[in-house]
Amino acid sequence: MDSVGAALYAKDVKPNAKKFSGINQNYAWGQDSWSDFEGSMKQLIPAAQVGTSQMPKLFAGQYGAEISALLASGSDIVHTSFWDGDLEAFILQAGPRGLFKKSTVILTTGETAMYKLAAQIPDGVIIGARGPFGVFAPNNELNKWFSSNFTDRYNVPPNYAAYQMTQSFLGVKTAWEKAQAANGGKRPTPEQVVAAFEGISYESPGGKVQMSLGKGHQAVMETAYGMTKKVGGKMTVEKVKRYPAEIVNPPEGIKSSDWIKNGFKK
């Protein structure tokens, strides 16, 4: 629920926003992200209107006309869930066009580009990491171990994708150990590991992971957003806000879209 967190952060920093727009990739991820953001904004800042919703195709690469449309919309807030090359191309093209100055831009996956494109991302851009990962990760022992080993190995800090892969391995490890213990110390079957995985909670470099939705098959975590700020030429984030898992995820058995439409009622 990255985009619910993004809308909560947008309300915190721009409570009087009159117009918001989006540019998202035209497939399920982009459409769902915009739908969640648009729905959440309508609940959180009802007076705000949609300027434009741009949906270029995945990996289009050229966003000149879309950026013009975003600039022309006069939006206070611009939301994007672009990732990887699309995100980087958008940052490279939007910066010289002045979009980051004219609107407060939210990059829900911006953490992956914050070091690579530090020179192109100005201060005041809202970035997320799809959870409490990377620059938003807690200062726990697992994170110190993971982050330092990853950085030593690859010469770059781990981004959210690396955190998520690591925590899925740790989840399987936790479930395996639980199933093995229940199996009298013998090697568990895949079915036993799957059963042991249901509903568990475990610690990861990103913090606590709870398999609390989807009848114990869907993990949730807190999420976090912050604003870019260069300190001594190095990219950092400031004004970090954390949103607990219960605030940015629907209760068990309720569809996200319905939950948002009903004003996030529990």
């Binding site: 990996f59 990887d84 090359g85 191309a89 490279l92 093209q93």
Partner: peptide, 15 residues
């Protein structure tokens, strides 16, 4: 001449 405006990544020749 397009390279400065985007991130040069594999498969960029498809589109």
């Amino acid at each position: 001449f397009t390279a400065p405006t985007l991130s040069v990544v594999p498969a960029m020749g498809v589109d």
